[in-house]
């Protein structure tokens, strides 16, 4: 079944709103579970989870930092009188991770729609064409940027810089060097793009016609309604629980 990109946008919007506003961990878990089920329904491949393995240490780090800097509740672990883990801190860290997961996983719902469809969805929502076009351009350029950053990172190591042997401070400095080629690539591309847009008379006429027209079907309305109800329901539970 194919859904209108607007329906998907509403779903993503519901999930991410809940992720941001809900504080209760169990409720967040429920939202996460449902977002996983929904995004699975949209036949998303789970490749990104494999890649996410690399970031596990980063996630653990977030939990730890949250816990160290906002201690609350009972102390679980302390080294030399420095409190490392507290129940409150741990909860805070877990909350951050759950939120990140919900937002990332629900965003994958959009992956099935082509950039062109997403622009069209935005236009039919009365978003100015220029802005919708910009959004789709940025979507299209993300993989290219990734590629360039990867090349730059490889190239800098091939210069004989052994990242593993560097101190943390120097490592950060290396990352800052990497911005140079990536940024220059972005600026260069923006220049070329603006010239070619001018050359093709972008915005020559105030109104654009479109060959694609999106139409919402009954099931789209149903899903939208369900998303909104779900959001209200969770908020309701959340408020009743105090």
């Amino acid at each position: 079944m194919k859904f209108d990109p607007r329906t998907k946008l509403i779903m993503v919007f519901s999930f991410s709103t809940l992720a941001v506003f809900v504080i209760d961990i169990y409720l967040l878990l429920v939202v996460l579970l449902i977002s996983i089920i929904v995004s699975n329904y949209f036949k998303e491949d789970w490749d990104f989870l494999k890649r996410a393995k690399k970031y596990i240490t980063l996630l653990m780090g977030i939990v730890l930092i949250q816990s160290i800097f906002s201690p609350a509740g009972e102390i679980l672990l302390s080294i030399n009188k420095i409190t490392i883990l507290t129940t409150g801190g741990l909860a805070k860290g877990i909350r951050v991770i759950l939120r990140m997961l919900i937002i990332i996983i629900s965003a994958t719902i959009m992956k099935g729609s082509s950039p062109r469809e997403i622009i069209q969805a935005l236009i039919q929502w009365k978003v100015p064409y220029e802005i919708a076009f910009m959004v789709s351009l940025s979507i299209r350029f993300i993989p290219i940027l990734g590629e360039e950053a990867k090349d730059a990172f490889t190239a800098i190591q091939l210069r004989g810089i052994e990242i593993d042997k560097l101190s943390l401070g120097k490592r950060f400095k290396i990352y800052s060097y990497m911005f140079m080629p990536v940024l220059s690539g972005v600026i260069h591309r923006a220049k070329e793009l603006s010239t070619s847009l001018e050359a093709r008379a972008f915005r020559a006429y105030p109104d654009r016609t479109s060959y694609i027209k999106l139409e919402l079907s009954k099931k789209d309305y149903l899903i939208m309604l369900a998303s909104l109800l779900f959001t209200v329901l969770i908020f309701g539970i959340y408020i009743i629980m105090g």
């Binding site: 730059a152 190239a155 004989g160 052994e162 060097y177 140079m180």
Partner: peptide, 24 residues
Amino acid sequence: ITLGNIGKKVGYLFQQPERQLFNP
């Protein structure tokens, strides 16, 4: 072998040289 050590033996010139330039 780490990329850092490969770089000490093998020099690689990219097809797009701007990707391997980092300084002002």
